[in-house]
Amino acid sequence: MSRKFSPLGIIAFIVVLFVISPLLVVIPTSLTSVKYLSFPPIGFSLQWYSKIWDRPEFVDSFLFSLELAALTAVIATLVGTMSGLALHKYRFRGSGTVNGLLLSPLTVPALIIGIAVLLFFTRIGLAGTFTGLLLAHVLISVPYVVRLVLTGLSSFDYTLERAAYIMGAKPLRVFIDITLPILKPAVMSGMIFAFLTSFDNVTVSLFLVSPTTTTLPLAIFSHMQESLDPLVASISALVILLSLVFIIILERVYGLDRLFGSNSHSH
């Protein structure tokens, strides 16, 4: 039905360009040979990539972010999958309320969660600790895992479990052999989404990092407020490429369109 160049198509193209252009310009910019940001970039060099290694705060924060995101992903996936199963399979009176409660961190702005957690953790002595930061990241990631697992379960046929059970499998075997493999796409997507949520986060981390350890997005954020040089571009380019890998896995395993329900994803 659609012609190649309908007016709507052109507007859609422009808007898509608008949304992806900030990411597109980062990579050429990182290859510039001058010391200031300009576009189109001037000259060509890889100096801004080699300069990353001279800045231990970026390398360290990158590794720290990876570690934090991986731990967050594993914990959030475990906790979220367990809750999803409890809510769907062992449906009980009040499970609707619990479900609403589990998703409620999505409805409060990340900034306010950050403030609340900082003040409360200061009171109980968790502020500035790795545990505190990890817990906060788990909190904001779990709702996504729960949502994805529940979506996965909504089309899950429980007679499959019965079939295995009556063939002689113990409940744990049934879960490992049947339930988990069938839920794998949902659980894996939940894990990747949790990873990206943690890896990208600035607003909550802002309040919870300690002076000595910081996450990569936060390091970039701080650096950008002091000076704007192509160093940020080279780091960003690397992060974009890394994210792209995960995004493509996510698209293959689950489909990005299914990830975005009607719930919010706050910054």
């Binding site: 949304v19 900030p22 571009a233 995004i247």
Partner: peptide, 22 residues
């Protein structure tokens, strides 16, 4: 759909940095 959603999975700091360049 992919092109609209995918950039959203990259940190807002980096997207804002792109805008600074533009």
């Amino acid at each position: 759909t992919f092109l609209i959603i995918a950039p959203h999975l990259v940190s807002v700091v980096i997207r804002n940095f792109g805008w600074v360049i533009l």
